[in-house]
Design a binder for these strands. Structure first.
Ligand SMILES: [Mn+2]
Ligand SMILES: [Mn+2]
Ligand SMILES: [Zn+2]
Ligand SMILES: [Zn+2]
Lengths: 141, 141
DNA sequence: TGGAAATCAATAAAAATTATCCAAAAGGAA
DNA sequence: TTCCTTTTGGATAATTTTTATTGATTTCCA
């Protein structure tokens, strides 16, 4: 759990309950899409508008407080900005697991340089089956 | 240029002019989004409907004849399915360049295994500035 | 404790995607 | 070929997703 208030102040954003709670649920659950955020915030703030969620997500992404995690064929998820990492995305249950770059980042950036490409951001996602789902599938057979 | 007709037959899809030309323009340009495909097909087939483009893209992706390339904050592009590779995406001009995995793929899959994750597909995109745009920016200063 | 600036909620509007329905075309069998 | 079944396309409507607008409310600093 981070210090959301300073994160907002540093970016010249006012700290409203709505905004704080959006950050809170994203942080709590790790990776959430717009609808998941909306339904969770609704529970504690029944009057919030979906447009408010969209607006806040947009500004928080712009200010790099949160980060978009695009997911093929589905809606993007969002996470609190943290150290660079990549994602293991389960195509069975939809779970998203963080994974450290370690030696990977060096290989990627050297490849970018080789192509005379000025690398600004890397987005790596591995799609497949998480341990839980593998076990579940194995049980059945 | 591939043999689109056999690619369709192998997947039990009928070869219509519309479908063939969709594959053609994707192949010609490398990476195109829905609207780009639509406008290019329109030129040679003025009666085609946008819904037809959507419908065909959907089936072609399902049958793995083409592949979706998600792009952050923009519409996905599509490419003819080919050997695994990753993308250098220019945030200035929108160009997409293919890039071979080489040693990278080994590192990624060993990382997946380490997390007991059954890897099915890898999606790696590097966002930044292509050589053309770097040069253009340097000229100005 | 004002008051400017930012934000919220409600709502409308726009954009993107999917569904429906019937005519037309494709492709296999005779 | 011709016939017949199935798939597909085009028009259009419907749905879903996202963005814009606007006036009321809230934040926060002087
Ligand atoms: Mn993450
Ligand atoms: Mn490519
Ligand atoms: Zn899973
Ligand atoms: Zn460029």
């Amino acid at each position: 759990m981070g210090d959301y208030i300073s994160m907002l102040k540093q970016n010249g954003l006012k700290t409203t309950f709505q905004r704080l709670y959006i950050m809170q649920v994203i942080d709590d659950y790790g990776h959430l899409d717009i609808d998941e955020i909306y339904s969770k915030v609704l529970l504690v703030h029944p009057s919030i508008s979906l447009a408010t969620i969209y607006k806040n997500i947009l500004t928080l992404v712009e200010k790099k407080v949160i980060k978009e995690v695009p997911i093929e064929g589905k809606k993007s998820k969002y996470e609190i900005l943290k150290q660079d990492h990549f994602h293991l995305i389960c195509i069975e249950c939809g779970s998203v697991e963080d994974c450290d770059y370690e030696e990977l980042s060096g290989v990627v950036s050297s490849s970018s340089r080789h192509h005379h490409f000025l690398q600004k951001k890397v987005e790596l996602s591995v799609y497949g089956y998480c341990k839980k789902c593998i076990d579940k599938i194995n049980e059945k057979s």
